[in-house]
Amino acid sequence: MSIYEFEAVRANGEKISLSQYKGKTLLIVNTASKCAYTPQFEDLQKLYLQLKDQNFEMIGFPCNQFGAQEPGDSQGAEEFCKLNYGVTFPIFAKVEVNGKDAHPLFQYLKEEMPFRGFDESNGSEKFLKMMISQKNPEWLTGDEIKWNFTKFLVDPSGTVLRRYEPSEEPRDFEQEIAELIK
């Protein structure tokens, strides 16, 4: 199995097969417009522009499961990204990433790349853990996505290579992706 066996709906309602990304390095991100991590859109867009002509693609999936930080509809989420951060990478329809209604793609991504645990020496991750314990303690354990801006790196054959947690910013891993697409 690979990510290419899944379908997803774009923010405009168009259903597509992820097989259209076959042969490309892919970064899949769950996003939100009212999150402390929302400014990552700026660096995600820079990374996308830097690498998009080198067999790289990025796709965003808005999610409202974390602190109701994506309250509008899918098209509103896409518009926010474009207007406020100049996002040109594809934004898909809102999805759930955890629980019984999680999109099958995100169920698969979590199975393939489990949560690595919290790095208590990292102040941002320590804060994130504290916030989750207050708002969604059920997501502290297991491989559930912990918050918005969890990112999954997929190689051109569809294999999930890496899971970057919300506190890991694009500049932290842009070199790793650049090396992969060489």
Rank of each mutant, 00 (worst) to 15 (best):
Q50T: 09
G72H: 05
K94Y: 15
C35S: 12
K82F: 07
M130Y: 15
M113G: 06
L109Q: 02
K110C: 01
V97S: 14
L128Y: 01
Q69P: 07
N136W: 01
M130N: 15
E96C: 10
H103M: 10
E42M: 08
A77P: 06
Y108H: 14
V29F: 04
E70I: 05
I132A: 08
T141C: 05
I59N: 09
C63I: 03
Q54H: 12
D101L: 02
F92R: 00
E125M: 09
I28D: 08
G117F: 04
G60V: 02
G86Q: 08
D53Y: 05
V87Q: 05
L49M: 13
E96L: 04
Q69C: 08
P137V: 07
E125I: 02
L44R: 07
F92P: 06
A102S: 07
P104T: 03
E96S: 01
N98D: 04
F118E: 02
W139Y: 09
M131T: 10
G123N: 11
E96Y: 01
Q75P: 00
R116S: 10
F106K: 07
I28N: 11
T141L: 10
L27C: 10
G76R: 03
E125H: 04
M113I: 11
L44F: 12
L26Y: 09
D73S: 07
A36Y: 08
D101T: 01
D101I: 00
G60E: 02
V97C: 01
K126W: 04
N84Y: 08
A32E: 10
L83T: 08
K135G: 00
Q75R: 08
E42W: 04
K129I: 01
Y37I: 12
N122L: 09
G60A: 15
S121D: 15
